[in-house]
């Protein structure tokens, strides 16, 4: 009996139209239900951080929280800057010059998140292992970064990310 009753439903335009309307309605309802998981208005409003870099001593690193993640601000020594600048681009898995990575050579600003799977690399504290190239070392899966935060060895595919930032005065950077 049911098979016979199925027949008219396939042919009729009106049934196609009503089922399409229901499907369209369901699709429209889905969007708010998904979009609610995106950052809320108050979260988006908090997405910039300001930081005074003059407080960071030469040879020291400081971690700043930006969007819930650490940003590394390192006041590099002369030796570290020279070391970073001297590297041949052909030696790098992800070639990029040191000058491209920081507008002020002595202040390096990096997103402190390993590009492999998101751990925070070691190297901020004086006692931390800094890896074979004297930059940072990610303990999760053994990625080594140099003094410019570039990947040199290990599973991470790219250099440590430079967050969007600018100097809003001589010593204050605005991240985000």
């Amino acid at each position: 009996m049911s098979d016979i009753n199925d027949q008219p439903t396939r042919r009729d335009f009106i049934h196609v139209a009503s089922v399409s309307a229901a499907a369209l309605g369901a699709a429209c309802v889905a969007w708010p239900l998904i979009d609610q998981m995106n950052p809320a208005a108050d979260t988006l409003a908090l997405s910039t951080t300001e930081f005074d870099v003059s407080g960071v001593q030469e040879g020291m690193s400081v971690s700043v929280v930006w969007r819930g993640k650490p940003v590394f601000v390192r006041h590099r020594t002369k030796a570290e800057i020279e070391e970073a600048a001297a590297v041949e681009l052909s030696d790098l898995p992800d070639p990029q010059t040191d000058a491209d990575r920081t507008p002020r050579p002595e202040i390096l600003v990096l997103l402190g998140v390993c590009t492999h799977l998101g751990c925070v690399p070691l190297g901020q504290k004086a006692t931390d292992p800094k890896g074979e190239w004297g930059g940072w070392f990610c303990p999760c899966h053994g990625s080594h970064y140099d003094t410019s935060g570039r990947i040199r060895k290990g599973p991470a595919p790219t250099n440590l990310v430079i967050p969007p930032y600018k100097y809003i005065s001589d010593d204050v950077i605005k991240i985000g």
Binding site: P32, L33, D35, Q36, N38, A40, A41, D42, T43
Partner: peptide, 26 residues
């Protein structure tokens, strides 16, 4: 989005109403 704590519950509901995308609708 809701926080079940007496200090935050009311505020978290208002955050749903004002800041969460389509939170007011839901």
């Amino acid at each position: 989005h809701y926080t079940a704590h007496v200090d935050h519950a009311f505020q978290s509901v208002e955050r749903i109403m004002r800041d969460v995308n389509y939170g007011w609708l839901i």
